[in-house]
């Protein structure tokens, strides 16, 4: 599948809370990070978990967030990052 994002792109995780087998941790929803890389295309766990085939495969990105931004704690080191693997349909270009 063609990748919508490339390394260095600023992306915001959708601030939505669908019910079901979702692999996007709630703590990054609504947060903005940077694409660090793409792991390739994988079957979608959100349909795979319910007897579906998980197709089409979707790009899975490593997205880096500032740790202090994720934790809402400015006393954390500005160097530190939390890296989360997020499927493409959860990401939007940062405003």
């Amino acid at each position: 599948m063609a990748q919508r994002f490339t390394i260095g792109d600023a992306v915001t995780v959708k601030f939505i809370f669908p019910v079901g087998h979702v692999r996007t941790p709630p703590y990054v929803r609504g947060k903005t990070g940077v694409i660090l890389g793409c792991h390739g295309d994988f079957r979608n766990p959100e349909t795979l978990a319910y007897g579906g085939d998980g197709l089409p495969r979707l790009p899975l990105y490593a997205v880096g967030f500032e740790a202090r931004h994720v934790a809402g704690n400015d006393s954390l080191s500005p160097r530190d990052r939390v890296v989360v693997d997020i499927f493409e349909h959860w990401l939007e270009p940062a405003a």
Partner: peptide
């Protein structure tokens, strides 16, 4: 996730301030 260096310190690992810490959240594939 909330305090990477503080948690590592409690577990016995003190990292220099000059080092970047990356918490990798292994939630997907």
């Amino acid at each position: 996730v909330l305090d990477p260096r503080g948690t590592l310190l409690e577990m016995g690992l003190e990292l220099p301030a000059s080092m970047e810490v990356r918490v990798v959240d292994s939630t997907a594939e």
